[in-house]
Design a protein around this nucleic acid. Structure first.
Lengths: 339, 339
DNA sequence: CTGAAAGCGCTAACAT
DNA sequence: ATGTTAGCGCTTTCAG
């Protein structure tokens, strides 16, 4: 900033009181100690000088930066921007600021980013990058940094998390497809090293079993990506086992399915129904518009931020994890089999 | 952070030298003043104690926060995440960190966000929110805060900007459509209060004139949004003037065109060709895949960050604005007329 | 080549 | 009800 900003001392001098008086008057928690007259004079002088507290000095003194670090796999995945808006809106209302970093799903990058954030002395962390067994998170626990997980959680479950009920979410898609008459249903599963991939597979398995349907048609992908989805779909079509529907573990995988289907000249949903997961922006614009599971993205971010703020305030009382409810969004990528 | 971090004093005590010696040894710029022996001992002790400089104290002393503010209209617009990655990668390499805020295209929110950022004492700003006449930016000039604009610029042009050549970009689409045989071409223009909206309209106007074609089929929108595009397209179809192609000022407007077309049962590109602008992620998945103008999103961010860092280092030498080159991406939303 | 000392702007005991 | 004082961790003149 160019212009030299007014400091507490400047205000104090102008009013003719001590620096600490100004500090206390300007602090809502201690303002009550003063006569209305002093409060008025100080407030006016502060206004006249355009006084703005220096957060750097505040931080150095209090050891709090009013900053939290947010780790996400990839900002260009449209799933995350709405989550971030939820986080930033909630943090902003409490005068906190988010610092965001992408990890590209690489644990090494997560470690580096976390180091930078800790270096910046963030007051807390929100991580969307948890693996089921996560060394990085073990460190965080050991260091007692306030932290909440979103979207994915760890097996150990020692850290408060805001996630959706993935088992139930996939159950919804199975019910929907079974209701349409499908019996041979395949699952393109995500990485089993992360809770979302694992829970969705579990959800598929349990729901299919409930209907006494076979669960042999499962391809495991090592990434929630379009190419991985395309490869899996291609593999599925190679050993054609007469499946009529595919449940992809997320929307990116489902888009990959579309690609592979198109390359083989198979048409969705007439020949194969496809479902996704997340209801990312723009999947309603695909051809055909994708049937998928909607998760409350903004709410996930907002809730996580709320929890983190609580945790920062009272680290001794970790807030309970939150399980949000997914809903099925039926569009045109699903239809009765053999349509 | 929980664990009390080692300070300079701790390191100094351990080595048996003065605090300032440690500071100087750890600073690459002043390290050369010392005997190799001292350097080694200090470095080792710092390593052993896990010393990490406290950026807060550094900032308080030096008046630099190694932080820059980034203002964007809306993170959920897929145009921006790649730009941000460019910014963050470049800033990160120089140990700078970005603070991001959304304005939703509201000048009031821009002012608020900027206030918060200045409050946080950012060293510089990157703004993707400029209007052609922008009071907020006038303030920034007056306060001499290092700043670079991206995507949009101001009429006054007093601030270095990284933008693409929008006149030329739209020219590309006109050439393409004319080459396909179109003569009656409409333009769904963006807000004329921002440079992108204005320049693209200008580009349309000039290119059409070059071909001696009429430029009467223009609808001005007050937002670069899907509903605005749909409304404009609907209006265009009402007074049907026999147009065979529509150039939308950006991809969101083009998607709105798709909506309106679908509602009227008109098929693209057979009855109407449509073009967009920006080549946002996922427009290749639309039906039909959108012909659009690609801008180097990551490069815009990276270049802007580079310029800002230079400006912060030497405020007296403002870097020249950069005009990046757009390219046409031909997909399936354009075809010869009356196909 | 290294040490001493001041001070960035703020908060929070502790005094009165 | 207000003032004094010390100090957060660092950089940087100024001495030597």
């Amino acid at each position: 900033m160019a212009r030299a900003r007014a400091t507490l001392r400047d205000v104090a001098r102008r009013v003719g009181v001590h620096e600490s008086t100004v500090s206390r008057v300007l602090n809502p928690a201690t303002r009550h100690m003063f006569t209305p007259d002093v409060v008025r004079r100080v407030t006016e002088a502060a206004g006249a000088l355009g006084y703005r507290p220096n957060p750097i000095a505040y931080s150095l003194k209090t050891n709090r930066t009013l900053t939290v670090g947010v780790l996400i796999p990839d900002l260009t995945n449209p799933l995350f921007p709405p989550v971030l808006r939820g986080i930033e809106d909630t943090l902003g209302a409490a005068d906190y600021t988010a610092i965001i970093a992408n990890t590209d799903n690489l644990e090494a990058r997560a470690a580096t980013a976390l180091d930078r954030m800790k270096g910046r002395r963030v007051d807390g962390l929100i991580l969307a990058t948890a693996r089921r067994e996560d060394a990085v998170i073990s460190d965080i626990i050991a260091e007692e940094v306030p932290c909440v997980l979103i979207n994915r959680t760890t097996d150990a479950g020692k850290i408060p998390a805001v996630v959706t009920d993935d088992v139930r979410g996939i159950g919804l898609t199975v019910e929907h497809l079974v209701g349409l008459g499908h019996r041979r249903i395949a699952h393109i599963a995500g990485p089993q090293t992360v809770s979302t991939g694992h829970d969705r597979y579990l959800g598929f398995f349990e729901a299919m079993r409930r209907h006494r349907l076979d669960t042999d048609l499962v391809i495991f992908c090592d990434a929630f990506s379009e190419p991985a989805g395309a490869a899996a779909m291609a593999e599925l079509m190679t050993g054609d086992d007469g499946f009529t529907a595919v449940i992809a573990a997320n929307d990116m995988l489902a888009i990959g399915c579309y690609d592979a289907l198109a390359r083989q000249g198979r048409v969705c949903p007439r020949q194969v129904s496809v479902t996704g997961y997340n209801d990312m922006p723009f999947v309603d614009k695909l051809s055909p518009p994708l049937t998928t599971v909607r998760i409350p993205q903004y709410a996930i971010g907002a809730e996580a931020a709320r929890m983190l703020l609580a945790l920062i305030k009272t680290p001794a009382e970790p807030p309970p994890s939150v399980l949000l409810c997914p809903t099925l969004v039926i569009r045109s990528s699903t239809a009765p089999p053999g349509g």
